[in-house]
Structure formats: C-alpha cells, structure tokens
Design a protein around this nucleic acid. Structure first.
Lengths: 240, 240
DNA sequence: CCGCACTACGTACGGTGTACGTAACTACGA
DNA sequence: TCGTAGTTACGTACACCGTACGTAGTGCGG
C-alpha cells in the first residue's frame, strides 16, 4: 500500500521525512518554490502537478510523496510567501510606536500581495495558521504590547489591517489578474468595460454615480494615497 | 461560421436575443439560475458547463449560444445574486439616517454572502459592474446624500463597507467552505487543526498569542457581535 | 422567396487531479 | 546479520473539465 489512508491531517504536522525508505531525491521546499514560481509567472491556474513535476524534473506522481493533496500545496505556498515579512526583533522597528509598526506591516503585506497576486485567491479559501502566519501574529501582538486594549481587540485590529490590505490590493490588481485568463489584452478589456460603463451612466439611470465619477473620476487617484489613507482610517477606528 | 470572433466584449453589452434565427429554447436567466443553484448546493467548483446543461436539459455546447465563456457565466452569477438586495425607494429605509442605512446594506450583504458563499471567491477575481451592482452603488450614494463628504470619499466608504463585510464573512465561513473539498468532515478538520495549533502554542514559541487565545479564546465570541462592532468601527472611521 | 444568421448538438482535443500498481531501496527488529 | 516492512519513484488509467469545430435545421430580413 503506497499512499497513506485518507485520515484527517494537517500538512504542518506531517513530517517531511519518514525514517524508513530510500532518501528522497527532492524536498518539500523545492516543490513549493517551483509552485510559487509558476504562480508568479502565469497565475494560480497554471499551477498543476504535471507542470511542477516537469519543473522539478521528476514524475508527476512522485510529488504526492511530498504533498498529500494539492490543497496542501496551496497551504504551503501561502505560508512560504508569508516568510517574506521582515519582522524586526524583538519588537517593532520604531521602538514602541505601535501605529508606525502596524503601518509597516500593512505596507509589507501590500508588497507581498503585489509580488504574489494569487495569494489573495488562496487566502479567501481559508488557511492562515502555518508557522510563518503564527510568527507574524506573534510579532504583531508584540508591536501592540504597549497598547491598552483587550487581547481580543488586538486580534481584531490585526485582522482588520490584514483584511483591509487584501481588499485594497485585490482592487488594485483586479484588472491585471483578470486579463490573464482572457483571450484579449487588459487594455482592450478596460476600454470595452469603460465604454459600457459610460454608456450606462449616460443613460441617466444612475445620476449620483454619474456625478461622482464625472468629478472624482476626472483624474485617476493615486493608489499610494488611497492605501495610506485607508490604512490610517482603520487604525484610527481602534484608537482615535 | 458558428461562434463569433474572439473580440473584446462585455457580457452586459451582448444582446440576449439576436433577431435572425429560430427562437431560443432557453434563456440566459434559466442558465444563470441553474448555475447559482449548483454553486449553492455543491460549491463553485461543481459549476460545470456539462452539469448546468444537464440541469437545464440541453446539450452542453448549446450553452455557448447564451454565454460566450464560463467567465461570463461567473459574472452573470454574481450580478444575479446582487439582485437580492432590498433597496428601498427612493432613499434609505430610515429617512435620512445614513449610518443606519449603511448598516442595513452591510447586514444584507452578509446575508447574501452566507446564502451564496461562492460569491466571495468570484468577487475577489474582479467583476463588480453589472446592472445590479450599479443599482446598488446608486442606492448607497443616495443614502449618503445628506452626508457632507466629497464624492470620492463616499465611494471609499461604500467600498470599505463592502470589503469589510466580505472579509468578515470569508472568515465566518472559511472552515465550512474548506470542508467541502476535503475527504473528511469539517469537524474532523477543525479538531485536527485545533490540536496542531494547541501543540504549537504549548511549545512556548508564541507566548503573546498563547496568552490571548487562552483568555479570549476561552468562550467563543458571538459572530453577530463581532460583525456589528466591526461595521460600526468602519463607519466611525469616516464620520467620527 | 431566397439566403444567411442563428439555433442546437455531437465529437474531439488537450488539459486537470489523483487512485492504483509495480519495482527498487533502506533502516529497523529479531 | 538478515529478512521484511515501509518508503521512494514513476507509469498508466480514469473521470472530469472548458471549449473549438463541424453539421443540420430553422425562420427572419432583404
């Protein structure tokens, strides 16, 4: 019997190497790195077991010795990417300014999500408790050490910052990511959708929306500015 | 030549019925309704062209006369579901209290997302400008009519409310949705993951996290309470 | 009334995740 | 020390996916 039974398990609790058989020719991190590379280059849908196996240079089914199911590979990918956080030790980089620390975390998260847009799709499907996620949480709690807030509220603050960053970046990259799976270019898509929207607005059925987009939509707003402002608002909402 | 060329187009601009040939046997809304039913019942991954065709009672490829690509079907599904908003006419239900109106919108959004959890996956991939989305935006702007805020800020407020609701509900249903694609039950999954987490916390590597979860995690917190509190914070962050 | 755009549908292609069987190899228990 | 159990690698096969393409029939616009 080759594969182990389909018992409930968590990938993090599964040892990478069992003591018995021949030495594995590859490693779990090789596989995850290849998957991340593929997703960065061609989107999450391009991550297939066959492609990764080809990249690594092994047979497709050999991967299942390292990763029991593709879902687990996703989970490993998300955690691998959250290793990119630079978590200054032992506390925040600002020497006690929790607000600056959380803004730094938000900016870092934004950078990570821009480098790996597929993370958004994966994270909305659930997993967020790998080793690196735990280190991240612990670090954030450390930054909030001096803050006079109950523990639950601190967790909510961290979750709000993360969630806000994710939705903002999701908006920022929506068009670009969507264009990846389309048979035409992103510019064409934007043009066609813009034309449709303008046509609808010209119809007069949405007067307020038309007014807002006519004035505010005249010059496109700076993404950095929106990001900083929104993040600031989130923090203010916890400690005004 | 049967299919039309792969030119950039938006599903909303494509007329459902062209004047020339025989009367279509089905309708776009039939197909979308079947897709929504399938997604509600078995998750978004269960929505396949073959299954919908079987539900409808037609050949698989006939669907492509109504929906050029599956992505467009997704877009139609999202908009179909946003028709479930009850948008009181002509303004908010509260006679000028924008705060109550936006809270109502948030609660309705939460209900919709709980009824159709797959919407979260689809919306993070982009499309949000179908007819019902436009009606929703226009309505929200109407609710904010009396509010002294620039148009851009109003749009940010609406986006923040929507984004917040989405991330909250994503967390609320993460486990349940994840369990759908697993070969074991959600309870087993939760048990195994909880055990792993407890083991990690017991290791002493995450003292602050362990402390927070030990006190705050003793009795599980009420989702309604978290939702209302978070939503309130978002509104406060715009107009304190 | 003719022609053509449109409908419906079957077949087929290239892709997916992964169950299962086989053969080689190694570390442990006796 | 040696047999054997468990692990590794990998090929084959299955069921499913989206959809390109071809064909036949239908009914409106010129």
């Amino acid at each position: 019997m080759a594969g182990r039974a389909a018992e409930p398990e968590v990938i993090w609790a599964r040892p990478e190497r069992a003591g018995r058989g021949p030495k594995p020719a590859y490693s779990r991190s090789d596989i995850v790195a290849a998957a991340v590379r593929a997703a960065d280059a061609d989107g999450i849908d391009a991550v297939s077991m066959r492609r990764i196996a080809a990249d690594i240079g092994c047979g497709t089914m050999s991967l299942y010795n390292y990763v029991p199911r593709k879902e687990d590979l996703y989970e490993l990918m998300v955690d691998a990417v959250s290793a990119e956080y630079e978590l200054s030790e032992p506390l925040g980089t600002s020497g006690g300014d929790w607000r600056a620390d959380m803004i730094d975390m938000g900016r870092q998260a934004r950078g990570i999500l821009h480098r790996h847009p597929w993370v958004i799709r994966l994270m909305t499907t659930g997993y967020a408790y790998g080793p690196n996620a735990l280190r991240f949480l612990e670090h954030c709690l450390g930054c909030l050490d001096g803050l006079d807030l109950p523990g639950g509220a601190k967790m909510e603050l961290i979750a709000s910052v993360n969630g806000t960053v994710m939705t903002i970046v999701a908006n920022e990259i929506a068009l670009a990511e969507r264009a990846r799976s389309l048979p035409w270019s992103g510019e064409q898509e934007q043009a066609v959708r813009g034309a449709y929207l303008m046509g609808q607005l010209a119809g007069g059925g949405y007067p307020r929306l038309a007014a807002v987009l006519a004035t505010a939509g005249a010059e496109p707003l700076d993404p950095e500015e929106v990001f900083e402002r929104t993040l600031g608002r989130v923090l203010d909402s916890f400690v005004p």
